[in-house]
Measured scan of single mutants.
Amino acid sequence: LQLFIKTLTGKTSTVEMEPSDTIENLKAKIQDKEGIPPDQQRLIFAGKQLEDGRTLSDYNIQKESTLHLVL
């Protein structure tokens, strides 16, 4: 599924993920695209901070969801 990652600067990146992927996997993919180390990334979806060990489906993240990346 395609996700949009929006940064505080207003920049939006697109990443392709599976519902079974963990937040950790997602942060690794963001690191590949943006060069931001996972330990500096905080991802927010629906007002919640996402935890590394959980999966996208745990948070009911659907295709074309927008996640907010806070550093």
Rank of each mutant, 00 (worst) to 15 (best):
residue 11 K to P: 06
residue 25 N to C: 09
residue 39 D to S: 13
residue 55 T to F: 08
residue 3 L to P: 00
residue 17 M to R: 01
residue 48 K to P: 01
residue 68 H to T: 14
residue 32 D to C: 07
residue 5 I to E: 01
residue 16 E to S: 11
residue 29 K to I: 10
residue 20 S to D: 12
residue 52 D to N: 12
residue 17 M to E: 00
residue 9 T to V: 07
residue 54 R to G: 06
residue 26 L to E: 01
residue 63 K to V: 07
residue 26 L to K: 00
residue 41 Q to K: 02
residue 15 V to H: 05
residue 36 I to H: 10
residue 26 L to V: 06
residue 50 L to S: 01
residue 57 S to G: 09
residue 31 Q to W: 15
residue 66 T to F: 07
residue 45 F to Y: 13
residue 56 L to S: 01
residue 61 I to W: 03
residue 68 H to R: 08
residue 62 Q to N: 09
residue 34 E to Q: 11
residue 26 L to C: 01
residue 17 M to N: 02
residue 16 E to D: 09
residue 57 S to A: 14
residue 51 E to N: 06
residue 21 D to L: 03
residue 68 H to W: 15
residue 13 S to Y: 15
residue 62 Q to V: 13
residue 64 E to G: 15
residue 20 S to E: 11
residue 61 I to K: 02
residue 22 T to H: 04
residue 24 E to W: 14
residue 7 T to A: 07
residue 61 I to Q: 02
residue 20 S to C: 07
residue 11 K to A: 10
residue 53 G to L: 08
residue 46 A to Y: 09
residue 38 P to R: 14
residue 10 G to A: 03
residue 38 P to N: 06
residue 3 L to M: 04
residue 6 K to N: 05
residue 32 D to V: 13
residue 2 Q to L: 15
residue 67 L to Y: 03
residue 52 D to V: 06
residue 32 D to K: 13
residue 30 I to G: 01
residue 26 L to S: 00
residue 53 G to Y: 10
residue 32 D to A: 14
residue 25 N to A: 14
residue 17 M to V: 13
residue 29 K to H: 06
residue 65 S to F: 07
residue 2 Q to I: 15
residue 61 I to M: 06
residue 52 D to C: 05
residue 7 T to L: 15
residue 55 T to E: 03
residue 32 D to G: 08
residue 18 E to N: 13
residue 70 V to N: 05
residue 35 G to E: 03
residue 42 R to C: 11
residue 42 R to M: 13
residue 1 L to A: 04
residue 55 T to Y: 06
residue 35 G to K: 06
residue 42 R to T: 14
residue 35 G to A: 05
residue 59 Y to G: 00
residue 32 D to I: 13
residue 17 M to G: 05
residue 36 I to T: 06
residue 37 P to Q: 06
residue 4 F to R: 10
residue 60 N to P: 04
residue 19 P to V: 08
residue 19 P to I: 09
residue 31 Q to I: 03
residue 65 S to G: 06
residue 70 V to Y: 14
residue 55 T to P: 06
residue 3 L to Y: 03
residue 39 D to W: 14
residue 35 G to S: 05
residue 43 L to Y: 07
residue 38 P to G: 08
residue 59 Y to V: 03
residue 16 E to L: 13
residue 1 L to F: 14
residue 25 N to Q: 15
residue 35 G to M: 05
residue 10 G to N: 05
residue 31 Q to L: 10
residue 15 V to I: 14
residue 7 T to Y: 14
residue 63 K to L: 06
residue 1 L to R: 03
residue 51 E to M: 11
residue 48 K to W: 07
residue 67 L to C: 01
residue 48 K to L: 12
residue 30 I to E: 00
residue 28 A to D: 06
residue 49 Q to I: 15
residue 10 G to V: 02
residue 32 D to H: 11
residue 29 K to W: 11
residue 20 S to Y: 12
residue 36 I to S: 03
residue 6 K to A: 07
residue 10 G to M: 03
residue 59 Y to L: 05
residue 17 M to Y: 11
residue 22 T to C: 03
residue 2 Q to Y: 12
residue 53 G to M: 08
residue 11 K to L: 10
residue 69 L to R: 00
residue 64 E to R: 11
residue 41 Q to W: 09
residue 52 D to H: 06
residue 49 Q to C: 10
residue 18 E to R: 14
residue 10 G to S: 03
residue 33 K to A: 12
residue 7 T to S: 11
residue 11 K to G: 10
residue 12 T to E: 06
residue 66 T to R: 05
residue 39 D to C: 10
residue 9 T to H: 14
residue 8 L to F: 12
residue 47 G to Y: 04
residue 47 G to F: 05
residue 42 R to I: 15
residue 50 L to K: 00
residue 26 L to R: 00
residue 39 D to Q: 12
residue 52 D to F: 04
residue 29 K to Q: 06
residue 39 D to R: 12
residue 38 P to H: 11
residue 13 S to Q: 11
residue 5 I to N: 01
residue 58 D to M: 05
residue 22 T to W: 04
residue 55 T to L: 10
residue 6 K to S: 07
residue 19 P to S: 12
residue 68 H to L: 15
residue 45 F to D: 00
residue 13 S to V: 15
residue 60 N to R: 07
residue 22 T to F: 08
residue 49 Q to K: 09
residue 8 L to V: 12
residue 27 K to I: 03
residue 6 K to M: 12
residue 63 K to C: 06
residue 66 T to N: 04
residue 42 R to L: 13
residue 38 P to Y: 13
residue 6 K to P: 01
residue 27 K to A: 01
residue 18 E to W: 13
residue 4 F to H: 10
residue 53 G to E: 09
residue 2 Q to R: 15
residue 3 L to F: 09
residue 24 E to L: 14
residue 33 K to P: 02
residue 5 I to V: 07
residue 42 R to F: 12
residue 46 A to H: 13
residue 49 Q to L: 15
residue 30 I to T: 01
residue 37 P to V: 05
residue 11 K to H: 13
residue 35 G to P: 02
residue 27 K to G: 00
residue 47 G to R: 04
residue 30 I to R: 01
residue 52 D to K: 04
residue 61 I to V: 07
residue 11 K to Q: 10
residue 36 I to F: 11
residue 26 L to G: 00
residue 18 E to G: 08
residue 40 Q to H: 13
residue 30 I to C: 00
residue 2 Q to S: 10
residue 20 S to R: 07
residue 17 M to T: 05
residue 65 S to C: 04
residue 24 E to S: 13
residue 3 L to N: 02
residue 22 T to Y: 07
residue 22 T to V: 05
residue 5 I to A: 01
residue 57 S to I: 09
residue 56 L to K: 01
residue 65 S to K: 03
residue 46 A to D: 13
residue 46 A to E: 14
residue 29 K to F: 06
residue 29 K to V: 10
residue 23 I to S: 00
residue 13 S to M: 15
residue 55 T to N: 05
residue 40 Q to E: 10
residue 11 K to N: 09
residue 50 L to F: 01
residue 56 L to V: 05
residue 41 Q to H: 03
residue 42 R to K: 12
residue 34 E to P: 02
residue 54 R to E: 04
residue 60 N to H: 09
residue 41 Q to F: 15
residue 31 Q to K: 10
residue 27 K to T: 01
residue 16 E to M: 13
residue 67 L to I: 15
residue 65 S to A: 12
residue 65 S to D: 14
residue 27 K to Y: 03
residue 35 G to Y: 03
residue 30 I to H: 00
residue 60 N to S: 09
residue 18 E to S: 13
residue 25 N to G: 08
residue 44 I to Q: 05
residue 27 K to H: 02
residue 24 E to Q: 12
residue 27 K to E: 01
residue 47 G to K: 04
residue 9 T to L: 11
residue 6 K to G: 03
residue 37 P to H: 11
residue 23 I to T: 03
residue 32 D to N: 10
residue 28 A to C: 06
residue 16 E to G: 07
residue 2 Q to F: 12
residue 12 T to A: 06
residue 58 D to T: 05
residue 22 T to R: 07
residue 35 G to Q: 05
residue 23 I to K: 01
